[in-house]
Amino acid sequence: MNEDELHSAASRGSHAEGLLKDELLSESFAKLEEAYIATWRSTNFDDVAAREKLFIAINVIGKVKEHLGKIAANGGLAKAEVEEMVRAAERKKRFGIF
């Protein structure tokens, strides 16, 4: 990755981390999951299609959280790489290596 891509990934990672820590978003995910599970439990025994849709909906919540977690982790790695690039540039500048 070039430096611009690293900065972009680091920024996206910070944003994703913020979303994962956001109380309102976390509450929304939890409430949705609770509602889906409650609805799933109250389906008729022969309503297979409804249970399958609810199962998918419940799993989508987890997939969204997982995706945000991956973006946050990749952003952390990108941030560390940018910081290392800055330190390397400072060392080169300090020792007169251009």
Score class of each variant (00 low, 15 high):
residue 1 M to R: 03
residue 2 N to T: 08
residue 3 E to K: 06
residue 4 D to I: 05
residue 4 D to L: 10
residue 5 E to G: 02
residue 7 H to W: 06
residue 7 H to F: 09
residue 8 S to D: 11
residue 9 A to P: 02
residue 10 A to W: 06
residue 11 S to K: 13
residue 14 S to C: 06
residue 17 E to G: 15
residue 18 G to I: 03
residue 18 G to Q: 00
residue 18 G to V: 01
residue 19 L to P: 02
residue 20 L to W: 01
residue 21 K to A: 11
residue 21 K to T: 00
residue 22 D to L: 03
residue 23 E to N: 02
residue 24 L to F: 07
residue 24 L to E: 13
residue 24 L to A: 13
residue 25 L to W: 03
residue 25 L to E: 03
residue 26 S to A: 08
residue 28 S to D: 11
residue 29 F to E: 05
residue 31 K to C: 08
residue 32 L to M: 13
residue 32 L to P: 01
residue 33 E to K: 11
residue 39 T to H: 07
residue 40 W to I: 09
residue 41 R to M: 13
residue 44 N to I: 10
residue 44 N to P: 11
residue 45 F to R: 09
residue 45 F to E: 14
residue 46 D to I: 14
residue 47 D to W: 01
residue 48 V to C: 00
residue 48 V to E: 03
residue 49 A to I: 04
residue 50 A to I: 08
residue 50 A to G: 06
residue 51 R to Y: 05
residue 52 E to A: 12
residue 52 E to R: 12
residue 53 K to Y: 10
residue 53 K to C: 12
residue 53 K to S: 15
residue 55 F to I: 00
residue 55 F to E: 08
residue 56 I to A: 13
residue 57 A to P: 03
residue 59 N to I: 05
residue 60 V to R: 11
residue 61 I to W: 04
residue 62 G to W: 02
residue 62 G to F: 04
residue 63 K to L: 11
residue 64 V to I: 15
residue 64 V to K: 07
residue 65 K to D: 04
residue 67 H to Q: 15
residue 73 A to P: 06
residue 73 A to M: 13
residue 75 G to N: 05
residue 76 G to Q: 04
residue 76 G to H: 04
residue 77 L to T: 08
residue 79 K to L: 12
residue 79 K to A: 14
residue 79 K to N: 12
residue 80 A to P: 01
residue 81 E to G: 02
residue 81 E to C: 00
residue 82 V to W: 01
residue 82 V to A: 03
residue 83 E to Y: 00
residue 84 E to K: 12
residue 85 M to N: 12
residue 88 A to W: 09
residue 88 A to F: 13
residue 90 E to K: 13
residue 90 E to W: 04
residue 90 E to P: 05
residue 92 K to P: 09
residue 93 K to S: 15
residue 94 R to A: 15
residue 94 R to G: 06
residue 94 R to M: 12
residue 94 R to E: 14
residue 96 G to R: 13
residue 96 G to S: 12
residue 96 G to Y: 11
residue 96 G to V: 11
residue 97 I to C: 01
residue 98 F to V: 07
residue 98 F to C: 00
